[in-house]
């Protein structure tokens, strides 16, 4: 199986306090931010690797995983990281971070899918920065492919995937014919979430995204990484979403200590007016 995994780099959520907004409020100032792959996209890479191996001998590849991201040269670091995790090839669509929206990314991905001809596009359900949750759905629509979102489990069948989606009160299982677009949720990296045709059903993975050891980190430098200009994939680079203004959340005011319950109730009734 050939799988294309689009991924996005996001500002490290552990450094959220460093996020600054440009004085005119026009955009987020990204200088000094540390980047990391969007966690849901990392989960998609892990799931893609599991679908292209037999579980027991991870070095034997039973397919190909191609990772793609959109961004400037520095975004190569994100791709190299995923190559170290185990992806086979990488594509960077050259552009700047703030000249993108979900629609443009999906339009460009459509052109890339037509070039690469993967059996599956597997991606995170959303990025943890904008939380838009759009690209997978728009891409499936543009391609006219079947789609399953928020996958918690994946099981390969001949020419299809069984996708388990966690919903309120249970699990919906869909059989999706390939090629398809599937977006993944966090439990996709649990030990028994993903099985390729070659993986024994008794196999249990270590929880989470696999670690990349030093040899894999070294080898990642030699794996193919190509650059494609955005306009080559989507001559129309116009955006459908315009950001009007960014502003930080209001600073939280200091709390007050109340001497007893009576005062607390009084404040809840008369000041906060929540009772």
């Amino acid at each position: 199986m050939k799988i294309l995994v689009p991924l996005k780099r996001v500002a490290d959520p552990d450094n959220a306090n460093k996020i600054k907004i440009a004085p005119d409020g026009a955009k987020i100032d990204t200088t000094g931010l540390e980047w990391k792959p969007n966690p849901f996209d990392e989960y998609a890479v892990e799931a893609a690797l599991r679908l292209t191996e037999n579980g027991a001998t991870p070095k034997v590849r039973g397919g190909e995983v191609v990772v793609v991201t959109f961004g400037p040269k520095e975004a190569d670091t994100t791709l190299r990281q995923m190559l170290a995790t185990g992806a086979d090839r990488a594509v960077r669509v050259d552009t700047t971070d703030d000249a993108l929206d979900g629609s443009l990314v999906a339009r460009a991905l459509k052109a890339l899918v037509e070039r690469e001809k993967p059996d599956l596009v597997l991606m995170g359900k959303q990025a943890v920065d904008g939380d838009s949750n759009q690209v997978g759905q728009i891409l499936a629509e543009l391609l006219g492919w079947p789609m399953a979102t928020f996958a918690a489990t994946l099981q390969e069948e001949a020419g299809a995937l069984l996708v388990g989606r966690e919903v309120d009160g249970g699990v919906i299982t869909l059989r999706v014919k390939l090629p398809a677009v599937v977006t993944v949720d966090l439990r996709i990296v649990a030990p028994t979430s993903v099985y390729s045709l070659a993986t024994a059903r008794t196999h249990k993975y270590a929880d989470g995204v696999r670690f990349s050891a030093l040899p894999a980190i070294m080898a990642a430098k030699k794996k193919p990484l190509i650059e494609v200009p955005l306009a080559e994939l989507s001559p129309d680079t116009s955006l459908r979403i315009a950001y009007s203004k960014f502003e930080p959340p209001p600073v939280r005011k200091a709390g007050v200590k109340v001497p007893d319950v009576a005062v607390l109730v009084d404040k809840l009734v008369n000041e906060a007016k929540v009772l």
Binding site: A206, F211, A213, L214, P215
Partner: peptide
Amino acid sequence: AAGLIGIGYPEAYGGGG
């Protein structure tokens, strides 16, 4: 398994290089 024990040891003996 996370590749953290064999760092600095030759790959020929199971190290991570």
